[in-house]
Design a protein around this nucleic acid. Sequence first.
DNA 1: TTGTATGCGTTATCAA
DNA 2: TTGATAACGCATACAA
Lengths: 327, 327
Amino acid sequence: MVANRAGASITTVSRVLNAVPVAVSAALRQRILAAAKELDYRPNALAVSLRKGGATKTIGLLIADISAPYFHVLTRGVEDAAQEAGYTVILCDTDRNPQKELKYLDVLYRKQVDAVIFAGGGVDDDRHLHGRNWGSIAVVTVGPHTLPVPRVEVDDRAAIAAAVAQLVEQGCRRIACISGQQNWLVSERRRDGYRQGLIAAGLPIDERLDWPSAFTLETGEACTKQALDAGLEFDGLVAFTDEGAIGAMRALKTAGLRIPEDVAVVGCDDTRIAPLTDPPLSSLSFPLHQMGVVAVEIVLAMKSGLAVENRRFPFELRVRTSSQRSK
Amino acid sequence: MVANRAGASITTVSRVLNAVPVAVSAALRQRILAAAKELDYRPNALAVSLRKGGATKTIGLLIADISAPYFHVLTRGVEDAAQEAGYTVILCDTDRNPQKELKYLDVLYRKQVDAVIFAGGGVDDDRHLHGRNWGSIAVVTVGPHTLPVPRVEVDDRAAIAAAVAQLVEQGCRRIACISGQQNWLVSERRRDGYRQGLIAAGLPIDERLDWPSAFTLETGEACTKQALDAGLEFDGLVAFTDEGAIGAMRALKTAGLRIPEDVAVVGCDDTRIAPLTDPPLSSLSFPLHQMGVVAVEIVLAMKSGLAVENRRFPFELRVRTSSQRSK
DNA sequence: TTGTATGCGTTATCAA
DNA sequence: TTGATAACGCATACAA
């Protein structure tokens, strides 16, 4: 239609609008530019992608739940890097439900996304995703996953182990653990870290101090209350999410226990809530924004045929009042 | 290629795969289905959309920042409803920067999105968006906007006014306000509410108690500290975000003031942090998830040619310790 | 019951 | 310097 209005062929219009290095008379060029402007013309990305052979400048981001704190900053990192590179992000909340993941993947395939980022750790060893033919889609995982693709990670085990070590250093000898869903890989890794930490400190492993939970405040509170009601004794506690730790602190306070004097507490992910709780919550901090950025960089590199390596980021234990006992 | 492998024409393949009500011999159908399965065939959504005349089953969601608490639940609501309807969401963080908004819109046009949702309130009266030809794109706004499109709203004015009223009821007579960026529409509306609240209570409006901020903890803390340092007196405070309120509480506590006895505080948006602060923060709650869902429902209705109406949701003032003085 | 031909909007090849 | 034409992958009107 631009061609029509400018009295030119679509070929010439395409040339002008795409600045193809072919001589076009100044007059025609002006007419075309004017027509395009008047019509507020924008090329149809569908047609372009179809013609050009597939690239859609689109990245699918699969996360558990955008309303869960872990993903906020990570997602922003992905989005920033994508936008910078002229890419667009399709947000996919999967609740770590394999069925939902597969359904979303199907849609992403159809929409011809250039890349897929799995973030936040897999479920059930990502069994449903193994052996899959990704075709030309670049895939990367962020967090604990088992897919044979490039990874962006932190050492979850070492992180939790470091938290345990800090509690031990504060004098804790019976350290409980609010872990997560058994079939979530991130729970497994972190539980490994918990045990390693205990072993490293020469402390016994007591199964009764390992409380499965669901990463939420409510479940964290519930399992802590249950343990207290059962008369279990413990003087330190590490939770795999900040929310779980906050729930635990609630239960502890309700029971009249002091934090950190009676029970010292450490959370995980260092979400924006951590420094605001009462008392301020110690937590493990990961460079989530940067991890999101790097995940995008990796898939872009893959698309360019460059060699890519796994990237491992350092964690940082932010010690706050909840696990800092005064002498 | 499925056609090839099955020894059929692409027409027949299309018919079988799309369950077109045309008789196809069982044998051929089986061959086609088998071939499709073996090849893990998925139709190219680009080609389909192009052929079918534009619909891409895609919604563009423009928000300020996915890492800001207001947007988490809203975004999840949008995503849930979109997924349910077979739509996909492109996430666009614009930081309320008009340039970024325009740039993203351009991309969304090109990608032929079916709908665009602007959420979180406009900036500068959305001047850069008025008079625009949306073509066949269904547009809806969530929160305070001035675009001539269907709206999903809460009464921001009445909400803040209700917060002021509650503070007055608690005996507050000099109520300060941590407002937001002057050119953000949501700030304006809420500031109106602040003033209305004061007027309704017969209290004077003191410009010195209106502190522009930037919705963040840091700026909330800074402007409160500044006011305290300047010797300003106030016994109540309403902030336009929870984070601003938390920053204020920090400054107040640092100055040795008690909450709510010396200064009662109310926040806004009732984010998940609110009940966890010390003391628990009173806040205005909006049904964000539902608002996201309804925003999607509206654009879908628009695409179906149905008549749509603006939707207004109720707010709820969640009174917690920060603004609840004991008798 | 099956297949051929056309066109969606664009770019690339070729011809004029 | 310009334009006609084919092809990207698919759905559909029409033919056989």
